Amino acid sequence: MAQEVRGVVARKQGEPVSVETIIVPDPGPGEAVVKVQTCGVCHTDLHYREGGINDEFPFLLGHEAAGVVEAVGSDVTEVAPGDFVILNWRAVCGQCRACQRGRPWYCFDTHNAKQPMTLTDGTALSPALGIGAFAEKTLVAAGQCTKVPEVAPAAAGLLGCGVMAGIGAAINTGGVGRGDSVAVIGCGGVGSASVLGASLAGAAKIIAVDIDDRKLEQARKLGATHTVNGKTEDPIEAVRALTDGFGTDVAIDAVGRPETWQQAFYTRDHAGTVVLVGVPTPDMRLEMPLIDFFSRGGSLKSSWYGDCLPSRDFPMLVDLYQQGRLDLDAFVTETISLDGVEASFEKMHHGDVLRSVVVL
């Protein structure tokens, strides 16, 4: 039987979000209903509200979530009611050309729930990243539920997007290894997680770059060995000075702007790797001498969701958290209610939080 729950809805571009009653249907084949315990407020949710992703309003926001499976469709075997899960937005199909080649983290046909959640008047909602977890309960594809050991949900849920994206950008996409040097440009939630990922991988020198001293201090706590304030220093010159003039083995742009991407490009060593994990807007353009791409060599990569495989990476990272080797709690700046999401967007804009986390 369909259920009525509260959820955070963005009805129109740029307008404040509202908490409204939404209808969650019973799970059909391949689907699961999850009772959401926590959901982080990610910058992607703000992108949805601002129309930066698409214009399929109204949106049911929220996607960085953990909770407990309440019900599953008749053919679902991978999870069962009562399972503690982290929600993911890359439920791989297993059949596309990427999956068939053994690269499921590049899956081209990821799954979402087939049935829509709706407003009480029947208007279909577009769930953010196919999840829509700023809600007491949500309907997802069963493959979007990754079962993990039960731990603090406010911390675990952050693996569902931002923390995974950052750690994965360093380890999976950038291939950071023992003894490497790494620059991370932009130390919000994703960039700070990239710093942590580089530290986990054994990087010898991790240079955090930002224009906010508060974020740089947090980056130090998560493993940065050096910091550069881009307001007072030229990031390219500063990073090169810290690497004997050579640049870093890996440079990660966790902002996603033309100027920060160029900083990453020119702060890396010859044949080094640039990783773009910050999300640009569709209007952004890049103009650079083509000869620089040729003459510097190396790799230029985009990292989508940290090139993660949730079934592989989420349990591993939860295990590291349980061992005390992965400080997920450091990312939880505050806990809020559903009514606090709009205010949290403003705090995010001003750089006051790494993550606000909705607790239901």
Score class of each variant (00 low, 15 high):
T118I: 10
D83Q: 13
V359Y: 03
G202T: 00
K231I: 05
P258R: 13
S74L: 13
T110I: 07
V19Y: 05
I23W: 14
T123M: 05
T267R: 00
F246H: 10
A133N: 01
E64C: 03
W261F: 14
L338R: 02
G324W: 01
A251R: 01
V332T: 02
A203M: 01
I207K: 01
E334F: 01
V239Y: 07
S74P: 14
E346W: 00
I53M: 15
T335Y: 00
H350M: 05
A113F: 10
L300R: 12
D292H: 14
L309C: 08
A170H: 11
T281N: 13
R11S: 14
D292K: 05
V163C: 10
D75Y: 11
D313K: 05
C308V: 13
F134V: 03
M284G: 06
E4F: 12
L119V: 11
G162R: 00
A156W: 01
V76W: 04
A2H: 07
T225G: 08
G160D: 04
A264Q: 08
A169N: 15
M288Q: 10
H47E: 13
L320N: 00
G245Y: 15
G278R: 09
V184M: 09
V76G: 15
A71P: 08
D26M: 08
A71V: 07
L87Q: 05
T146V: 11
V5I: 10
R355G: 09
D83S: 14
F134M: 04
E217D: 12
C145H: 01
T173P: 10
V250P: 00
A135P: 00
A98N: 11
L196W: 01
D283G: 05
V148I: 15
V176I: 15
G30E: 10
R325K: 04
I236P: 12
V190T: 02
Y106M: 11
T260K: 09
